Amino acid sequence: MLAVRVPKREAEKARRKLIELGVLAKGYAVRREGEFVLFPVTEEVEGFELVEAEFERLERRPHSYREVVEVPDSVKPLLPSSFDVIGDIAIIELPDELMPYGKAIGEAILKVHKHIKAVFAKGSKVEGEYRVRELIYLAGEKRTETLHRENGIRLKLDVAKVYFSPRLATERMRIFKKTRSGEVVFDMFAGVGPYSILLARKAKLVFACDLNPWAIRYLEENIRLNKAHNLVPILGDVRKVAGKLKADRVIMNLPKFADRFLREAMLSVRSGGIIHYYGFSPEEDLYSEHEARIKAVARELGFSVEFLERRKVRPYAPRQFNIAIDFRVLK
């Protein structure tokens, strides 16, 4: 087929030019001949040396497991377009109609995404005081412990024993950017430390509390992994800790029940300090109910609040959102 022949030192510049002109033939491997590189082209191109050459066809890799999965056509429209990846473990939410084909779906995910080693389906909602869910094994390695990387930190965890959402990585980085050097931070519902470990890179001191002993066990391991020696893990009910420490910044990442712990958060923050509050809300009224509750608790304590930022963090369910409200407490 027709090809452009250029010196190796000019190859990248030539490649960009051919793409810009829309003449670079797709689906073929570039050839190298000594000090020259050959690019397949679809038509003659002025300003280049043209030759005839044979090229090896590239095998197109599927971009989605849905392209290779073997399920009946009747259920293909139900295949989810996305799934969570925690370390090298994939967790997918399947409707009941797809559960009989779980193994095939899991194997298709492994085939397309080589970095994934195990696939599970969500078997229940996040529930219980430890905020964990049942997982159903589909394919790959039969293990639930993994090492997850995000925002430059490493987090070891067991997806069956602790709560963790990879979808909050952007939100965690947002808080990191707001945190100032020298602050004391209180992470009220820390889990394995995705907020705490990250914020410890800036803060003077981080207190990280969780009720789940597995979460604290992994948090302690993550402290060692990331050399976060200014982080203090606390196992227990946050209500027994509140007020015994004073922080410049408080993280309330318990969106389903955070409103129940506003008193504890306000008692633990210094005057002028900031609380990052999370909740769930219907699309038609994202913030007003949560803000009314925040104001009411502040009044009961004789404090006042200043709202700084409101944002939708992510969709949670149809017409439901996980929201964030940042506010300052004045005592």
Rank of each mutant, 00 (worst) to 15 (best):
G272R: 13
D259K: 11
I275L: 15
S281E: 00
D259C: 04
A208G: 01
P213C: 07
E291A: 08
P213Y: 03
N226Q: 10
R260E: 14
K244L: 04
W214T: 08
R224E: 14
Y278C: 04
N226W: 10
F257H: 04
K240W: 06
K246I: 07
R217G: 03
E300C: 12
N226L: 14
E291P: 05
G273A: 11
S268R: 08
L262Q: 11
I323S: 05
G279M: 05
I275R: 15
L245H: 01
K204P: 01
A296N: 15
S271A: 11
H290T: 08
L286F: 02
H290I: 12
R299P: 06
A247G: 09
A242L: 07
H229P: 01
G273R: 09
A298D: 13
E300R: 15
G236S: 07
I275S: 13
E289S: 11
A247R: 13
I323P: 11
A317D: 03
A296S: 15
F207N: 00
R311P: 13
E221I: 03
R239W: 05
S268N: 09
A265C: 08
P233T: 00
N230V: 12
R299K: 15
A215K: 00
E291K: 13
I234F: 03
R270M: 06
A203D: 01
L205N: 04
F257M: 09
G236N: 07
V313Y: 06
